[in-house]
């Protein structure tokens, strides 16, 4: 073999090696690295909210404060049980905890400033879930949480058999066998839509009287002019079948005139929800891709941006205008 053949053989060996590698990865290696995220030491089961620049979360049955990228367990809150979920309102955290001895699930109120459980707060009965707008779902139905107690909403026509619900800070949508109800933060039913057996999959408040309701893969705009007996006729948008909701439904958050939607394995963006023709896009959201694998995920409007809390990969501030994310924990 002469030297020219040897050089050519060496060149093609190296070249074939060069082009054959990384065929199994869907993204460039350096791209993957710069989009890697810090693994947090705690798994966030529920993000509660922010108070005086500290974020509060529930992780594996315990309450944590996240401050300056560090986390601190709030001890002595409930030593003989586990915390199931909660919500933060001003300086108070209301949470459902399950007693180990009795297995009862009761609501407690923790004051962040005084670092104590408020013994004057009482709740009777057993509770399944507490919502971020101040409601709780208990064995008797829907409860409204006041300063000193959780009181059953008895004078509303809402049946106790709630099929599915979605919540935001200032409204809640829930479906029963026969109807869909939209309730504001004061406990008033704003809109009742009579439609049986709907598959509620998401919810977003747009204004005081205007909402987006997700039914399966269709998004409907609902307001006080909507025909309550024939509410879901023409969807604004029908999501692609590949944007599967699975059992979690769609999480949504507003930034300006844009709505970020989290589907099961991708993010979608409604570009301008005030315009006559809505457009939904999924391109340009690559910077969020590595956050979709983790469920549950929490997204909410936050200081004119969007806060996104993941189960294992920390908390991010998302800016859908500049397509950037900043990890704050």
């Amino acid at each position: 073999m002469n030297s020219t053949k040897k050089i050519l053989l060496a060149f093609f060996t190296i070249f074939s090696l060069f082009i054959s590698c990384n065929t199994n990865a869907e993204e460039g290696i350096f791209y993957q690295i710069i989009n890697s995220t810090k693994n947090t030491q705690i798994k966030i089961n529920q993000y509660l909210g922010v108070y005086e620049n500290n974020h509060y979360v529930i992780s594996q049955g315990k309450l944590y404060k996240i401050s300056n990228n560090n986390y601190f367990e709030i001890s002595g809150v409930y030593d003989d049980g586990i915390i199931i979920n909660g919500y933060l309102k001003d300086e108070n955290i209301f949470f459902i905890c399950q007693e180990k001895k009795t297995s009862l699930t009761i609501i407690r109120k923790y004051n962040i400033d005084s670092r104590t459980i408020d013994s004057s707060f009482s709740s009777n009965g057993s509770f399944r879930m507490i919502f971020e707008n101040g409601y709780a779902l208990g064995e008797q139905g829907l409860y409204f949480i006041k300063e000193t107690e959780a009181s059953l909403i008895e004078d509303t026509p809402i049946p106790k058999t709630i099929k599915k619900f979605f919540i935001s800070k200032d409204a809640i949508v829930l479906s029963t066998e026969a109807s869909v109800f939209i309730i504001d933060k004061n406990g008033d039913i704003k809109i009742t839509l009579n439609k049986s057996s709907v598959s509620l999959s998401g919810f977003q408040k747009l204004s005081d009287n205007s909402y987006l309701v997700f039914i399966d893969k269709n998004i409907y705009k609902v307001d006080d002019t909507t025909d309550s007996n024939n509410p879901f006729t023409t969807p604004l948008v029908t999501l692609s079948s590949s944007w599967d909701t699975r059992s979690f439904g769609y999480n949504t958050a507003i930034q300006g005139n844009k709505i970020l939607i989290k589907a099961s394995s991708s993010f979608l963006l409604i570009d301008d929800y005030n315009s006559e023709t809505y457009t939904i896009k999924s391109n340009g959201l690559d910077y969020l891709n590595n956050l979709t694998q983790i469920s549950p995920i929490y997204i909410s409007s936050y200081n004119d941006k969007i806060l996104l809390a993941t189960n294992q990969n920390g908390i991010y501030i998302i800016d859908v205008n500049s397509n950037t994310k900043q990890q704050i924990f």
């Binding site: 090696l17 590698c21 990384n22 199994n24 990865a25 993204e27 460039g28 290696i29």
Partner: peptide, 13 residues
């Protein structure tokens, strides 16, 4: 040339 590897990605550059 350099061989580099990260997660399941491999490359010779």
């Amino acid at each position: 040339i350099s061989y580099f590897r990260y997660l399941e990605g491999k490359y010779v550059s």
